[in-house]
Structure formats: structure tokens, C-alpha cells
């Protein structure tokens, strides 16, 4: 019988969470709830009774806490994927700069400035035509 060989483990990327099979299993209920927010009626139902709505999707206690605290990093630790979480954030009127500021521990203004500062690193080059 062939021995099992563990796949090579890529070194972690600081501050970066790969949404893999383990996360997808762990986060299924939370992500399913967020996916439901594509429909306005479901967004309204969540706002009307958050606890009941979380119950309907069977969120784990960890996921419930993370949602109650509006804590994006905690939602990710509970298996949340940002593409689905963005739909939840939208209900609270938060955009991706707000969410980025929260995760990096910066003010929204400081986070936006950091985004702008990335422009300084653009290599200079003449625009090609032809």
C-alpha cells in the first residue's frame, strides 16, 4: 500500500488568509447567510430580527459572536469569505474601505491615505501605442 505523502505546505503570507476547503467547511453557515442577502427581503428580515435570522442559518456560536460584534477578522476566523461578507457589510452601510480600516486597525482616513500612497510605487513608463 502506498504511503500517504503530505502535500507541500506553502509558507503563510502575513496578514493573509487563504479561503481553502477547511475555511469553506467551517464558514459554510455564515457564508450561506451572507449569500442570502442578495435578496432585499432577506436583508430586511435580518435587520428586523438578527438573532432569528442567524438561527435560521444555523450559525455557530463563534460566527454569531463575530456578527454581533461586527468584527470582520473574527468573521474570517470563523470561516467567512470576504466576497460574501461584503454583502453583510453592505447592510451596515460599510464599504470595503471601512472594512479594510477595521481589519488593519487604522482610521478610515488613514486607510484611504495608505491606498493613495500605493500610487507612488508605480514604475514610470511611456504609454504604449502600436
Amino acid at each position: 500500500m502506498a504511503s500517504q505523502v503530505a502535500p507541500p505546505i506553502a509558507p503563510p503570507i502575513p496578514g493573509t488568509h487563504i479561503f481553502d476547503g477547511a475555511a469553506a467547511q467551517k464558514g459554510y453557515a455564515l457564508n450561506a447567510m451572507c449569500f442570502s442577502f442578495n435578496e432585499a427581503a432577506n436583508r430586511d428580515a435580518f435587520l428586523h430580527d438578527e438573532d432569528a435570522y442567524c438561527d435560521r442559518f444555523g450559525l455557530t456560536p463563534q460566527q454569531r459572536d463575530a456578527v454581533a460584534q461586527r468584527n470582520v477578522l473574527a468573521m474570517m476566523a470563523a470561516g467567512g469569505n470576504i466576497y460574501y461578507l461584503a454583502k453583510l457589510a453592505g447592510i451596515f452601510g460599510l464599504n470595503v474601505q471601512d472594512v479594510g480600516a477595521q481589519q488593519t486597525g487604522m482610521s478610515v482616513d488613514a486607510f484611504k491615505q495608505m491606498l493613495l500612497d500605493n500610487a507612488a510605487a508605480i514604475p514610470t513608463r511611456e504609454t504604449a501605442r502600436g
Binding site: I82, A86, Q103, L115, N118, A121, I122
Partner: peptide, 17 residues
């Protein structure tokens, strides 16, 4: 671009170029 995690806001003009 990176929306999630503590490295949110990351960009890399060199790689994009």
C-alpha cells in the same frame, strides 16, 4: 488588491506592471 485580512489594502504596482 486585497480586501481581507490584516494586509487589506495591499497593492503591488511592480507585479501589475
Amino acid at each position: 488588491h486585497q480586501l481581507d485580512g490584516e494586509r487589506a489594502g495591499f497593492m503591488n504596482p511592480e507585479y501589475d506592471t
